[in-house]
Amino acid sequence: MTTSAPGEPSVLRYGWTTGACATAAATAAYTALLTGEFPDPVEVLLPKGRRPFFALATESLEAGAATAGVIKDAGDDPDVTHGALVLATVREGGPGDGVVFRAGEGVGTITLPGLPLPPGEPAINPVPRRMMTEALTRVANAGGRPGTPDVIVEISIPHGEEMARHTWNPRLGILGGLSVLGTTGVVVPYSCSAWIDSIRRGVDVARALGHRHVAGAVGSTSERVVAELYGLPDTALLDMGDFAGAVLKYLRRHPVPRLTIGGGFAKLSKLAAGHLDLHSKRSQVDLALLAELAEQEGKPELAGPITGANTALHALELASEAGLALGDLVAGRALLTAERVIAEGKPETPIAVDIVAIDRAGTIVGRAGPLP
């Protein structure tokens, strides 16, 4: 599968989610359990009607159990699980139990509340569970077994525990490995849907744990600064990255009493300009806005130098030399953007927001909003 934006010469390949791969592996394994033969390639029906075929990377049939494996192809998306082997072992289950899911090697277990599944459950999300249940039901029905089959499905991802260290699973309380994810079965290159989903799950976990103050930080340095400033635990820290809009829009529907947004001065100057996606490819620093803020504070002589500055931090240095607290001004304007986005959702619970801007060294250079 391929995709490209209008006018772009390059073409990026779509990929498949771990949920789609697990469904393919489970379908092949259960078919072999019933018939003695593995379909290869195996067809999978995805939620939006696509019917891709997956080649099997491994297969094994023994008394009472069948295992099949699929190599995940994430297309051109920089997915940590690209190239991972997704295994499904299917066994007969107890009468009336339906499809029971278990976490094998490299698949995590949920340990904190607030996620779509309760603590103790394997981290196989609801949509992949539904995809597998529907697929196995079709296999059972085709083999003359009416209704949902009574089977145990164990999903494994070798080396998944190591890969999970590069995800947000440990902070979300998903221990021992990766999550089996996917709502459509398709990975859209650079859609960042997994990152945004992690932000939402972070909010859910924080609320379930009763946290009344959460923080979204652009990077690790700003996160450390904010956590130390307010004494926040890991479970109150949201891996916001460049997705300020995702944090604000989800919190206005699922509010907590207090939100801190922390980030570098340059990134927060983009939020000050009204941008909700702070990535360099999707928004740029508006030096004219910084010059305008200087003029409004009675420093018109800084307008020219700031407009011609090399970077946002250069503009900050120029302002500092002239005795202008540009960091506070940018934080204040960023606060207005955040409050506007939250207000658009008319949350039932008021959310107090404050902004913390830092420089490259991690020094706080600007703040706005009420102190706790």
Rank of each mutant, 00 (worst) to 15 (best):
R102C: 08
P116R: 11
G108Q: 05
A140G: 01
M163S: 08
I71H: 08
V107L: 12
L61D: 04
R102N: 13
G104N: 03
N141V: 05
D79G: 15
E105T: 07
P119M: 05
I155G: 02
G173C: 04
L45E: 15
G144D: 00
R145W: 02
R129Y: 00
T133Y: 00
H159A: 13
L56V: 14
H82M: 12
P113L: 06
P118V: 06
P126F: 13
G75D: 13
G144N: 00
A135W: 01
G96D: 04
P170C: 06
Y30E: 04
R130H: 05
P119T: 12
P158F: 03
T58M: 10
P39Y: 01
E154G: 01
G64E: 11
G96L: 06
L46C: 04
T111H: 02
I124W: 01
V151P: 00
L56G: 07
T31K: 02
G94P: 14
G93S: 15
G104A: 03
V107S: 07
P39S: 14
G114T: 06
T67G: 01
E121G: 14
D97K: 13
P116W: 11
A57K: 13
T31L: 02
R51I: 10
A164L: 09
T109F: 03
H159Q: 13
H159P: 05
T167M: 14
D97V: 09
L33V: 06
I152F: 01
L61S: 08
D40G: 14
G173Q: 05
L61R: 01
K48F: 10
A57V: 06
A84R: 11
A103K: 07
R129E: 02
E37S: 06
G114Y: 09
P128C: 13
R138S: 00
A68G: 15
A84M: 12
G104R: 03
A66Q: 06
A63E: 11
A142C: 03
Y30D: 10
T89P: 03
A140F: 00
T35P: 10
A164D: 04
D40N: 08
V90A: 09
D76K: 14
N125S: 15
V107R: 12
P52S: 14
W168L: 08
D77E: 13
G83V: 15
A74C: 10
P128A: 01
V86L: 04
L115W: 06
K48W: 07
G106C: 09
G160N: 09
I71T: 12
V153D: 01
I110H: 09
G94D: 08
N125G: 15
